[in-house]
């Protein structure tokens, strides 16, 4: 049982690390109009899907054959949930890569250039939060969950400020820029969501360790939190 569990944790970590790489490569492809890098991300997406299938099958085998209880059961359930978030984060990286590939032929687009620093910063934060979250998942380290939440807030702030800049561009400059502006807005949005998924993974770690489900603790108040504006 212990070996199987640590295998499972290790695999989730490897999958998360791959997702973090995908995020970095996709944004680099976008910022450098590098079509090959974008294609690499699209090819590697298959490996993320394979990981998901593999880890879920492993979890299922564990549940069916070993009937884990208490903290072992929580570990298996937390990892199954985390894998869903990792796969969705991978999907967002794929979307960025598609945009990068479609625009690579014409060089780096104007709107992308305007917020290039924000994009780079958000990509760094998003991939870091992903790495930190899966490391915490592997080690069962609750403390780290706070770091991930902090990173997520930073990503959200950067998102808001980059969005404002893009809206200014959209309103001031020629309307023909609108399409690329919105493609860039969606790339930003993808990064913001990757931060959310990392935060979810960190919340699964809290559940794994303490048995407390904290997923909605910020939102279950009578007055909804301000976090989901978009």
């Amino acid at each position: 049982m212990n070996t199987a569990l640590s295998e499972l944790r290790l695999h989730a970590r490897e999958m998360g690390t791959l997702v973090a790489q995908q995020v970095e490569t996709a944004v680099r492809a976008l910022l450098e109009a590098d079509g090959e890098a974008a294609e690499l991300v699209l090819r590697r997406e298959q490996r993320i899907n394979d990981w998901q299938t593999e880890i879920e099958a492993e979890s299922f085998r564990l549940l069916a054959m070993q009937a884990p209880v208490a903290s072992d059961l929580r570990t298996v359930l937390a990892i199954s949930r985390a894998v869903t978030d990792l796969e969705r984060a991978g999907d967002e990286a794929k979307k960025i890569a598609r945009f990068a590939l479609a625009s690579a032929g014409h060089g780096v687009g104007g709107p992308t250039r305007v917020i290039r620093r924000s994009l780079r910063h958000m990509a760094n934060l998003a991939s870091e939060s992903m790495r930190v979250a899966v490391e915490a998942l592997d080690r069962g380290d609750v403390e780290v969950a706070h770091d991930v939440a902090r990173l997520d807030r930073e990503i959200d702030q950067e998102f808001e400020s980059a969005l404002r800049q893009l809206m200014t561009v959209a309103m001031e400059r020629a309307p023909r820029l609108l399409k690329p502006v919105f493609d860039t807005v969606f790339a930003l949005k993808s990064l913001e969501r990757i931060g959310d998924h990392a935060k979810n993974v960190a919340e699964h770690v809290v559940f794994l360790v303490s048995g407390d489900d904290v997923r909605h603790s910020g939102k279950s108040r009578a007055v909804p939190a301000r976090e989901s504006q978009h």
Binding site: K219, S220, R221, A222, P224
Partner: peptide
């Protein structure tokens, strides 16, 4: 505002399944 009810149902069903 009512979304918290959806969240609560998810947590409850999830716990029941575990």
């Amino acid at each position: 505002r009512e979304d918290y009810r959806v969240n609560r149902m998810e947590v409850e069903i999830d716990e029941e399944c575990s």
